[in-house]
Design a protein around this nucleic acid. Structure first.
Length: 259
DNA sequence: CACACTACCTGGGGGC
DNA sequence: TGCCCCCAGGTAGTGT
């Protein structure tokens, strides 16, 4: 599920989970989501510390803990973060549950465990950021053109590459290219500057709406709202949409609008 | 270096 | 009903 807009929503969950209460309990219900940190160390480092102001880069979420290490979340394809009262039931996929201020629960839920939770010192944080391009929400037009220049492969592959631009995932890329009327397999190198600008503009609009909604909205007027139909048609022109695999991911596009 | 492909996990759905 | 295979909004590792 989580692409930039979803993770931005999880950041809001942290910011609004009743201020910055200190961690009073750390319940690791499935150590399979811990990356490079033991259950014992996670508990030791977090208990008694206050969660600072969360920040996000691409699909990564960073939570400083006062003078301690930074708590780092990545949500893979199925992760989420929620804040609830202690009375609410813990579900099977709630892998880590933090108690804040003795009363609120912060639950890291993730079915597939493709990614996970880690503790990072500042060097670790730098290492993560080094592998990422600029955040998709912060890339201006000129920088976008620069980032995509010299790329040979499919434009969708370039947009999906987190080291180029951070935050775009499979749904966002299809949505952006559909809105910009560019076929996903088009070689990046063959795109005119004008077309690249159109993609950048589409990225901005798609992200703005998606961040507001906390996800890429499955509206019927969007490609995302059609892609799971048994026989999807383009919301713009009614043409049957095509489906293929690019960069290992299912890719849906309109052969009429996007070419 | 740029790119493509697979493995890593779990669970839901379709076909037989 | 059970089993098997495929698929799913991500990334790291490996090979070309």
């Amino acid at each position: 599920m989580p692409e930039l807009p979803d993770v931005e929503g999880f950041r809001q969950v942290l910011l609004t989970c009743r201020g910055r209460r200190s961690v009073t309990d750390v319940d690791v219900r499935d150590a399979g989501v811990l990356r490079g940190v033991s259950e014992e160390r996670l508990r030791k480092e977090l208990e008694g510390r206050r969660l600072g102001k969360a920040w996000r880069h691409g699909k990564w979420l960073f939570v400083p803990t006062g003078d301690g290490p930074t708590l780092v979340f990545h949500f893979g394809m199925t992760g989420s973060l929620r804040c609830c009262d202690q009375e609410e039931p813990i579900e099977a996929h709630d892998r880590i549950v933090l108690t804040l201020g003795g009363e609120r629960l912060l639950c890291y839920r993730d079915q597939r465990k493709l990614q996970g939770v880690r503790l990072a010192d500042s060097a670790d944080v730098d290492r993560i950021l080094e592998g990422l391009g600029p955040d998709a929400l912060a890339v201006d037009r000129d920088e976008f053109l620069e980032l995509l220049s010299g790329r040979r492969g499919a434009v969708k592959s370039a947009l999906m590459d987190q080291s180029v631009v951070a935050g775009l995932g499979n749904l966002l890329c299809d949505e952006i290219l559909w809105r910009a009327r560019v076929a996903p397999r088009t070689s990046t190198r063959s795109l005119s500057e004008k077309t690249l600008r159109r993609i950048h503009a589409a990225m901005g609009r798609v992200l703005a709406t998606s961040v507001r909604d906390g996800c890429v909205p499955p509206r019927r007027s969007w490609l995302t709202g059609r892609r799971d139909d048994s026989e999807p048609v383009c919301p713009r022109c009614g043409t049957s949409m095509r489906s293929t695999r690019i960069a290992g991911r299912r890719t849906v596009w309109c052969p009429h609008c996007q070419n």
